[in-house]
Design a protein around this nucleic acid. Structure first.
Length: 403
DNA sequence: TCTGGGGTCCTTTTCCTT
DNA sequence: TCTGAAGGAAAAGGACCC
């Protein structure tokens, strides 16, 4: 009989580590990755392919101090963090704290490449792997030969070694009876560490931790718990399930109780279909619906074209078309509209999104505009669906005689 | 002078139908 | 024709995650 062993693997400082592989000359220097706007790309000389990347002199890299515009830090190297800059901080604010930091644009194509590489190494060893974004996965060790040895430590070490030898990147692994605990375990021993959690470790290892360490308890839920005097997972475990359901709703309440007791039966899911695809953009400056109408129109059309292209490239169609607005005061409004058929056409999306946009308040200045297509279906499946247009008129008349 | 972009899931509200 | 209840679907909002 085999015990359920689930691993959570988390790459260490993934974006920054990938950048340092490409630009080893930046090792030890404060480096900030973020912005991602064209502005940085234009400033960079890094597109010059006439020489090797590692030959670019440190003095040639763009500095945070020279950056103007909006944007946040996606990640920062340890050397940069010492100055107090970190993820989600505005670039302007970071520039004051550490003007000399090197600023690199976010290069998703590059991260995706390394992502695919480390994931294929994992599936070669343990095929049951679930994607959790570019730098994280869950792996089901249960039935993998050797997956039970030392609680999973032997297999975790093997995977770590294989990834490092192929890519030069390190990762942290937690192995536990389920995904919830594995996710927490992978945080225990960073970077390049392995943590094994067994059932009997719940009380000594998990209960002393802050509730916030549970994946799914964010700032809001944590604040609410604290207000009731609940700070640790152990305290949460002692809370009455009925009371939790009253305060947080029946589903969330039950989940909180289970989570505190380390219970989680979610399987490792190897593939899943997307639910929605969207594109959004924050403007260089806040825009006015009337005065900047032309500019907004151009951006709006471009977003629709981008979503349409994404859908077509990935082979999906959708029928719930929506817009998202973020006003200058950071309030968010969404409006959407469900079509009677599936589409991936830019014009149709633009048309439907335009309808949605008309219903949104446009008095306040806008900071961000987004377009979303939901209720997705693989294009192949949608073809097999009876379309409304194919239902003969007389049949419609039969179904709705009053029309 | 702040605060990105791309997702998922859950809850509440609203609207439609019976 | 009006009213109210009930239930489902769609819309809207919000929390959370990477």
């Amino acid at each position: 009989m085999s015990l359920r062993r689930i691993a959570h693997l988390d790459m260490d400082a993934f974006y920054a580590s990938v950048e340092l592989l490409r630009y080893p000359q930046l090792k030890g220097l404060p480096v900030v990755i973020g912005g991602g706007r064209r502005k940085i790309d234009e400033d960079l000389m890094l597109g010059d392919t006439s020489r090797a990347l590692h030959d670019i002199a440190v003095s040639e890299f763009p500095l945070l101090r020279d950056y103007t515009g909006r944007g946040v830090i996606t990640t920062a190297t340890y050397a940069a963090r010492q100055f107090g800059v970190g993820s989600a901080m505005g670039l302007m604010k970071a520039a004051k704290l550490c003007p000399q930091a090197v600023l690199l644009p976010v290069d998703f194509a590059q991260y995706r490449h390394y992502s695919q590489r480390f994931k294929s190494i994992i599936t070669d060893i343990a095929p049951l792997m679930e994607n959790r974004g570019v730098d994280e996965v869950y792996i089901d060790f249960t039935e993998v030969p050797g997956g039970q040895r030392e609680g999973g430590r032997v297999l975790a070490r093997l995977i770590q070694k294989a990834i490092f030898e192929d890519t030069g990147l390190t990762c942290s692994v937690g192995v536990a009876p389920n995904k919830l605990l594995a996710k927490m375990a992978s945080e225990f021993n960073k970077p390049n560490g392995i943590s094994i959690v067994l059932d009997e470790d719940l009380q000594p290892l998990i209960w002393p931790l802050a509730c916030r360490k549970i994946n799914g308890i964010g700032p809001k839920a944590d604040e609410k718990l604290q207000k009731h005097g609940i700070q640790t997972i152990g305290q949460l475990a002692q809370a009455e399930p009925l009371w939790l359901k009253e305060v947080f709703g029946s589903k969330t309440g039950a989940w909180l109780h289970d989570a505190a007791w380390g219970r989680d039966s979610r399987p490792v899911v190897t593939e899943s279909e997307p639910i929605s695809m969207s594109r959004e953009t924050t403007f260089e400056r806040d825009l006015d619906a009337v005065r900047d109408r032309a500019e907004l129109g151009t951006i709006f059309t471009r977003l629709c074209e981008q979503v349409a292209a994404d859908l077509q490239r990935k082979g999906y169609v959708g029928k719930t078309i929506g817009v998202k607005l973020r006003y200058a005061d950071f309030q968010i409004a969404t409006r959407d509209h469900t079509l009677d058929h599936y589409t991936a056409q830019a014009q149709e999306i633009r048309q439907a999104a335009g309808q949605s946009l008309k219903r949104a308040p446009l008095q306040k200045r806008l900071r961000l505009l987004g377009v979303r297509v939901g209720s997705l279906l693989p294009a192949e499946q949608a073809k097999l669906l009876p379309s409304d247009k194919e239902i003969p008129d007389d049949r419609n008349a039969l179904l709705f005689p009053d029309d």
